[in-house]
């Protein structure tokens, strides 16, 4: 009778892995170091939490009379997002074909172009906005340019990977009958990847709508300008109005876009 009991006690135990311990040490070390470097202290937050909730309460009582001023800039914001997505995706479309290894066989060309793409991809959207404001001056054009470059980075990565994973059969068949590059792209590649492309463009558009709402903060056009102005004069009721409108618009566009992406992929 005692045998099963001991069997249970000698069940194989999980091995303690040294690597796991090491990761834990790295994690805790990172936490300690970064808490010190950033000077973050939760007690300080809780001590001043009143200031934080005060702003929140002020924002919760929005000033609806302000919405008349806000709406035209919201529309401008959406326009910036649409144009940024449009320009960025056109460039991304051509560029993806140039860096897909099953379209361009020259390894050197694809490697150099991919390097350029990876560097462009690392720059965050607002940083692009700040740079373009410095280049072309304050206004929505800077926002459109920043979002174009940003969209390019988002779409090109997803799209060239989609191109590389297509069924090689049609390409081989067309090569065998002597089709040229353009015909191969048109007949063998594009029909297989167009739905993906549209889906990625919609995805980039969702990100762009979010990004465009704050671009104005650094002078790149759109609703962000009022966000900055109202925050500067501590008019939180108006800030609240802007934020609520932004959230409604963003969630709405997100919902429509993700539903149409699902319909597309089905």
């Amino acid at each position: 009778m005692t045998k099963p009991a001991t069997d249970l006690l000698t069940l194989p135990r999980k091995k303690l892995r040294v690597m796991n311990l090491l990761w834990l040490v790295v994690l805790i070390g990172g936490l300690v170091v970064s808490t010190q470097v950033t000077n973050t202290s939760l007690p300080a937050l809780f001590a001043n939490f009143g200031n934080f909730t005060e702003i929140f309460v002020a924002m919760a009582k929005p000033d609806w009379s302000y919405s008349g001023t806000v709406i035209p800039l919201v529309i401008q914001t959406i326009k910036i997002a649409i144009l940024g997505t449009f320009f960025g995706s056109i460039v991304a479309f051509v560029y993806s074909l140039l860096i897909a290894r099953n379209v361009i066989k020259n390894r050197l060309v694809t490697a150099v172009l991919r390097f350029v793409m990876n560097i462009i991809r690392t720059i965050p959207d607002l940083l692009l906005g700040a740079i373009f404001v410095a280049i072309v001056g304050i206004g929505p054009v800077a926002g459109v340019l920043a979002l174009s470059v940003f969209t390019f980075g988002v779409v090109v990565k997803l799209f060239y990977e989609a191109i590389e994973t297509i069924d090689p059969g049609p390409i081989e068949a067309l090569t065998a009958v002597g089709a040229n590059k353009w015909q191969i792209i048109q007949v063998a590649i594009l029909p297989q990847v167009m739905t993906y492309f549209i889906s990625y463009v919609l995805y980039a558009f969702e990100i762009n709508v979010r990004a465009s709402t704050v671009l104005g903060y650094i002078g790149a056009g759109g609703i962000g300008l009022y966000l900055q102005q109202t925050l500067q004069v501590f008019d939180y009721a108006r800030t609240g109005t802007i934020i609520i409108i932004i959230i409604v618009v963003v969630v709405l566009i997100d919902y429509i876009s993700s539903k149409s992406r699902e319909a597309l992929m089905r």
Binding site: V214, G224, I243, I247
Partner: peptide, 8 residues
Amino acid sequence: IRSFPEIV
């Protein structure tokens, strides 16, 4: 939460 602007 996602749509609340990070900068604000």
